[in-house]
Amino acid sequence: LIVFLYITLIDSQKSKSSKSSKSLKNSKNDTIKKEIPFIQKFYTKTLGEIKVDRKKGRLPPKGSILNCIVKCSALHGCHCVRINVETSECNTFVSTVDDPNSERNTSVLEKYVYYTNNGNREGNNVNLALGKKVTQSSTYNQFRAQKAIDNDKRTESKTSGGKEKRRSTLPWLQIDMKDDHVITGVMLLSSDEKSVHDFEIRVGNRQISKSEKGTHFKENPVCYAYEGSDFLQKAKPKVVKCEPCPLMGRYVTLQIVKNCTDCPNPGDNYLNLAELEIYGYIPK
């Protein structure tokens, strides 16, 4: 009888433990299910693929993604996270020093899943360049730099080219945002589409100097880069995004970084813009 009661007691405890464990697991799963809409509402997956392993299941697990995003949400100015697909290691990107886009090697990028903070979604379509200070490497006639961000597509900025003394072999245009902004993307428009070739858009806190003529500016992280002369179509705007992560900084720089090999005048680099718009938000 004593043995029977003992076995019954043990079975009862196991049953309670099993129910408690199952209840805890269900509670955790319910929490994750409730939090996934939070991820989708405030964060966007910009790069990387969720994998499914027969033994390990979903990689990285939803819980790991959620924990990483919650960690980012608690950090002032955190605008992007990446989670290692295999190890679930979480990296958050906060300051202007962080360069989440530096590892552009495909084999490296495939190891991670990237999520970006949407910031102020309504403000992401507002042109932040309006009213800001802008400079360019040189100026051709009356085509001042300010005309690139005056919200008037009929006016244009243009740097010197050809045999002009003031010309820069690697022309650039830089916008001073006055304060740190998280830059999500840039719109470019030109009536001379071949002038916007082989370029880089960089974001950071390092200001380019007019004395740096003919120098490839590499001080700030790269938001977007393009190689070739077929990026734009005449009089048609094109928007590019900072990927896999937005970048935070005060200065946004567009620079031609090498000679155009298939332009009408190869080696004659100049930058001609009808309009440049900047999208993003102020970090909270």
Rank of each mutant, 00 (worst) to 15 (best):
V3T: 05
F4G: 01
L5G: 03
T8H: 13
I10F: 11
D11S: 14
S20K: 11
K22S: 14
K25R: 09
S27E: 14
N29Y: 09
I32G: 01
E35G: 00
P37W: 00
K41P: 01
D53H: 14
R54W: 08
K56L: 15
G57L: 10
G57W: 09
L66G: 10
S73L: 02
L75M: 13
R82I: 06
R82E: 13
E86L: 07
E86R: 12
E89R: 10
C90V: 09
S95I: 08
S95D: 14
T96A: 12
V97M: 01
D98W: 03
D99M: 09
D99T: 07
P100I: 13
E103S: 15
R104Q: 05
R104L: 06
N105F: 05
E110F: 05
K111F: 02
V113Y: 01
Y114V: 04
T116L: 14
G119F: 10
E122V: 08
L128T: 04
G131M: 15
K132P: 05
K132G: 08
K133Y: 10
S138F: 05
S138W: 06
S138E: 06
Y140K: 10
Q142A: 06
F143Q: 09
Q146M: 11
A148G: 11
N151P: 04
T155L: 06
S157R: 04
G162W: 09
E164C: 02
K165Q: 12
P171F: 06
L173M: 15
Q174H: 03
D179T: 11
D180W: 01
D180R: 03
V182E: 01
I183N: 00
G185I: 08
L188V: 03
D192T: 13
E193A: 11
S195H: 07
H197M: 04
I201S: 01
R202G: 05
R202S: 13
N205L: 07
I208N: 00
I208M: 02
K210A: 04
G214Y: 03
E219G: 03
N220Y: 04
V222H: 04
Y224W: 10
G228R: 05
Q233T: 11
K234A: 09
K234E: 11
A235G: 01
E243W: 00
P246N: 06
L247R: 03
V252A: 07
Q255K: 12
I256P: 00
K258R: 13
N259R: 03
D262M: 09
D262Q: 14
P264N: 14
D268L: 14
D268G: 10
Y270L: 10
Y270D: 06
L276C: 13
Y281C: 05
P283M: 10
